[in-house]
Every structure is written in structure tokens, then in C-alpha cells.
């Protein structure tokens, strides 16, 4: 014990890493604000709407991923294929009517992701590798069933999802509403509180008698439902769906969760943080776009933002615990 406690102390004299981190963070935020204010056409209502709209689809999926991450199962790498598959189901079920198609989409999304969650929850399978396998399986099945072709809507009901009440896209209202619901569930219900405990310390949660497997599976079920909502909006927006409908959504959603400051190790974080992360990344991409940078630079900056937040959150939590 002595050997272990003596070494770090001699290596690092007593100092407060939190202070340095806060200073750097403050400078970064100031720089970002200055950059934003000096960007032409950034401070317009139209641009604010554009940022919110582009944050909304990623944000809804990221809310689902937040449940997975807080519950201690790290991330799902199968978000894009799930969204693609559910989007295809949603559009091909349009002839049943919008509501029926939505219900069917949410059911299928819940089933696809919930199955993965059951394996992660009950068997403690590694979620990253399991969802890598699942993404292959979902894409394979979707390609096999659709014959690799693009699905067109069987009726026009889906177009109501593209409505813009009050000039703002419907998906923005849905994002804010769902963020509040998820936040309330996490803070105020027994399920939410157990989820934090399971994410913080799975073994302790099990020792305390919590049904770890079932809670984890339920978190993934909820995530699947939220992925399905994203799928319905994405498919409605594109008016057609194929296996590539999900695009880069997997990594966009992970970026939003991590940029919001939710640590990947679980046990901490919130839905509102994810909402902030999604808006932050959308705003950064928007500034770069207005300043004329290419898509590549936008993706690169997204990666750098995630890296900086991951390091900052890690240093701050370590600083406050020490």
C-alpha cells in the first residue's frame, strides 16, 4: 500500500488540475463566442432555426444513446443501421396510415435494440463488439429483405412529419419534449435512479438487489424507441429509404453524448447535457459552414471537440474526487 501511495505523490506535487482545466475551458468558450459573433449571418433567426433543425435528428437518437451510456453499457455502434432498417419499415407501412406506421416503427426499433440490450444486460456481453456484430446483421438482413433497393413510401401520410408549426421544424419540438421526458425519467423515477447506480457500479447494484439485467434491457428498449423516432423523421425528410439512410448518425450521436459531458464509463450525465452537446456540435458545424469550410473540416472539428470534452470531463471528475 505504501509503495502505491508514495509514487504518485512524489511524481506530482499538490496542485489543482481543476483550476487549469477551468481556465483553458473558459478561454475556449470565449474564443468560440468571438468566432461565432464575428461570423457573417450567424446571429440571424433563420440561422438559429437551421442549427436547431440540424441538431434535432441527431439529438433524438443521442437521447436514446444517453440512456445506454448512463446505464454503463458504453455506446451502441449499431445506431445507423437500426435507423435505416426502421426507416424502411416506416415508409413501406405508410399505406396503414401515419399513426399505425409510427407505432410499427417504434415497435420494430424497440425490438431490434432491445434484443441487443438483453444480451448486454443479462450476459454482460461487451456492448461495443456486440453492436458491431449487430450492425452487420441488421444491414445484412435489411439488404436481403429489400433486395438492396430503395424503399419508396406507399402513401403520403409521412409528409405531416415534415410540418413546420410556427416556422420551426416539428422535429425540434419533438426533440425538446423528449429531452424533458428522458430527463424527468432519469431524475424522478426509480428506474432512472437505479440506472445511474448500475452505470456507476454494476457489481454494487447487483449486490443491492437491483435487477441489473432487466434494467439494462429496459434502457436499451427506450433507446430503440428513440432511434425509431429519429428513423421516422429521417425517412420522412428524405421521402425514401435504403440501407444507407442512417449515414454517419452512429458517430454523430456518440459525439453529441460525449460533447455534452456524459462520461462513457456511465453513472453520470443527463439528457439535457446531451441536448446541449447536440446543439454545440450543430452550432460549430454551422459556423464552419458559414465560413466556407469543407465537410471534411467540419467532421474533423467535431472529432476534436469530442476529444477536448472527453479529456476535460475526465480531468475534472478526477480532480473533484481526489
Amino acid at each position: 500500500m505504501n509503495v502505491m501511495s508514495a509514487r504518485p505523490r512524489s511524481a506530482a506535487p499538490i496542485r489543482r488540475p481543476g483550476l487549469v482545466v477551468d481556465g483553458v475551458l473558459l478561454l475556449a468558450v470565449l474564443a468560440a463566442i468571438v468566432l461565432a459573433l464575428t461570423t457573417d449571418r450567424f446571429l440571424t433567426v433563420a440561422n438559429a432555426k437551421a442549427i436547431l433543425t440540424s441538431a434535432s435528428l441527431v439529438g433524438i437518437a443521442a437521447l436514446g444513446l444517453t440512456l445506454i451510456t448512463i446505464g454503463g453499457s458504453a455506446v451502441s455502434l449499431a445506431i445507423s443501421p437500426s435507423v435505416a432498417a426502421v426507416g424502411m419499415i416506416f415508409l413501406s407501412a405508410q399505406s396503414l396510415g401515419l399513426i399505425a406506421a409510427l407505432v410499427l416503427a417504434v415497435l420494430c426499433g424497440t425490438l431490434i435494440t432491445g434484443l441487443q440490450g438483453a444480451v448486454v444486460g443479462y450476459a454482460a456481453a461487451n456492448p461495443v463488439v456486440l453492436t458491431i456484430a449487430a450492425s452487420f446483421a441488421i444491414t445484412g438482413i435489411a439488404t436481403g429483405v429489400s433486395g438492396g433497393s430503395t424503399v419508396s413510401p406507399t402513401a403520403g401520410g409521412y409528409d405531416r412529419l415534415n410540418a413546420t408549426p410556427g416556422g420551426v421544424a416539428l422535429s425540434v419540438y419533438v426533440l425538446i419534449g423528449l429531452a424533458l421526458i428522458v430527463e424527468w425519467t432519469l431524475r424522478r423515477t426509480g428506474f432512472g435512479r437505479s440506472l445511474y447506480l448500475i452505470g456507476e457500479n454494476r457489481r454494487a447494484a447487483r449486490a443491492a438487489g437491483l435487477p441489473v439485467g432487466r434494467m439494462t434491457a429496459v434502457a436499451w428498449l427506450g433507446a430503440g424507441a428513440l432511434f425509431a423516432v429519429t428513423a421516422a423523421f429521417t425517412a420522412a425528410f428524405n421521402t425514401s429509404a435504403n440501407v444507407n439512410l442512417g449515414g454517419t448518425l452512429t458517430f454523430d450521436a456518440i459525439a453529441a453524448v460525449l460533447a455534452g459531458g456524459t462520461p462513457i464509463s456511465g453513472g453520470r450525465g443527463s439528457a439535457l447535457r446531451t441536448l446541449a452537446g447536440a446543439v454545440l456540435i450543430a452550432a460549430a458545424s454551422d459556423i464552419l459552414l458559414l465560413r466556407g469550410y469543407s465537410t471534411g473540416v467540419q467532421i474533423m472539428v467535431k472529432g476534436v471537440i469530442v476529444l477536448v470534452v472527453v479529456v476535460t470531463v475526465h480531468l475534472r471528475t478526477r480532480g473533484s474526487r481526489a
Binding site: 471534411g296 474533423m300 476529444l307
Partner: peptide, 18 residues
């Protein structure tokens, strides 16, 4: 995991920018 994931995103962006 989170570090290499962020690097992965940044590197894909870098490749695309190049």
C-alpha cells in the same frame, strides 16, 4: 474507447479534408 473514437471521427474528417 472515447479517446480513440474521437480520434477516429477527427481522422475521417482529416482524410476527407485532404
Amino acid at each position: 474507447m472515447p479517446v480513440t473514437l474521437a480520434t477516429y471521427i477527427a481522422l475521417l474528417g482529416l482524410t476527407s479534408a485532404l
